[in-house]
Nucleic acid binder design. Structure first.
Lengths: 225, 225
DNA sequence: CATAAGTATTTTGTATACAATGTGATGGAG
DNA sequence: CTCCATCACATTGTATACAAAATACTTATG
């Protein structure tokens, strides 16, 4: 299952490796990503590394500053707020459209994902739990059949995952999350589009407060430097 | 007023030049952008050109295919539909939040922009008219004070402008556009958030039909090849 | 004449060398 | 001791050369 998928170019491979490294929290917010270091780690030259970094910049996993290079972004409180406010709107849109467009099979899949998450919670398997919850959101978006929306949400979620796995991140309350997912699913099943939209919005805004707490902790910690 | 602003790097300059060239319709949808050509046009080497192309890919003004290069995207009907559906949601969000957050000064600015657009229409100055209408949308988004939303809308609008100036694009009905802008502004002024959201949504969805007509014309024209 | 294989050419991908810029240390003046 | 100028070093920016892949063309073959 750990099959290494062959990618057509070195740049692409570097992109995927760095993508995993960033999202798994291997770097600290604010850290400068030096091209030389990456070339040594991956054993390739600077050209494909720069290519990969620009691709990562595209997803906001890095920010570039001319003549300074690339770094892991450090969100301000306002940026985090804006980020979540937008994501709340889009997840709400997804829930609304899913209520109108999801097939019975889609709803069955969402049910299965929710129950699998529930089992993982009871088994204290937080890794699988998080994975199932992510899948739940992804599949809800997929039900809308709007690829632009799916892509936008993927990007926003990646930007948030960036920080979720980091040292300062507060862990979400899993039972609370599951309960909210259940409520969204309930609305979608009953084709209650507006209620689904509102549930999804509330759900995201709840996680904002958790993120803000975590950021405050991080800032007071690193401010000690 | 045509002052050339100095940019810190050649890549950045190339990016801005190409950005203008693409948005002003200098390339045909589906056209391959060859690195060599760009180096000769701009008198620079391939490295900063590749850099600039990747930056443009970030805004979906280009798409890259490994070992083939970059090309101007050709939208399908479904892609165009998804694009506009998402933009309608975000412009609606912007109008809603603007109703709640716009200052009196903001509303005054929107009024001025609308009246300037109106004058341009009467003077048959379509260039200024389009510019003012764009500014109207930009400033409406700015009123929300959500930078993520502003950036997302900028990106979506650029993707649409890409096609608007092209040969196949139908011209919008200016009087109709102005009337809809006036209605949005009316709702914002009265702090009627939900009505503003709905007006903005309808406004965008109206322009979808125009775009679809244009795309159909383009496809039947180029299909003759 | 159509088709397919093989070769030539074009184009992108990668590596490396050099230039330009930014950072940090060093040392002197106030 | 603090501040500022200067210089050395580190890092990114750019150009160019070569490698690999894709395309176009030619030619042989049915």
């Amino acid at each position: 299952m750990t099959t290494r998928l062959d990618v057509p170019t070195v740049s692409q491979a570097a992109y995927e490796t760095l993508h995993r490294m960033i999202l798994s929290g291997q770097f600290v917010p604010g850290q400068w990503i030096k091209e030389r270091e990456i070339t040594e780690i991956l054993g390739i030259s600077r050209t494909p590394v720069r290519d990969a970094l620009r691709m990562l910049e595209r997803e906001r996993l890095l920010v570039s500053i001319p003549h300074r290079g690339f770094r892991i972004p450090v969100p301000t409180v306002k940026e985090l707020h804006d980020y979540y406010e937008l994501r709340a709107e889009l997840e709400g849109m997804a829930a609304r459209l899913a209520s109108e467009r999801a097939t019975d099979s889609d709803i069955q899949t969402l049910n299965n994902l929710w129950e699998s998450a529930q089992s993982s919670l009871l088994a204290h398997d937080v890794t699988t739990l998080a994975e199932r919850n992510d899948e739940f959101h992804r599949h809800l978006a997929a039900c809308t059949d709007n690829d632009e929306l799916v892509a936008s949400l993927l990007r926003l979620r990646a930007g948030i995952d960036l920080y979720r796995n980091l040292s300062w991140a507060q862990k979400p309350r899993p039972a609370h999350t599951l309960q909210q997912h259940q409520h969204i699913l309930f609305c979608v099943t009953n084709r209650n589009a507006l209620a689904a939209q509102e549930s999804a919005r509330v759900h995201i805004m709840d996680s904002l407060s958790i993120a803000l707490q975590g950021l405050a902790t991080f800032q007071s910690n690193s401010g000690a430097k």
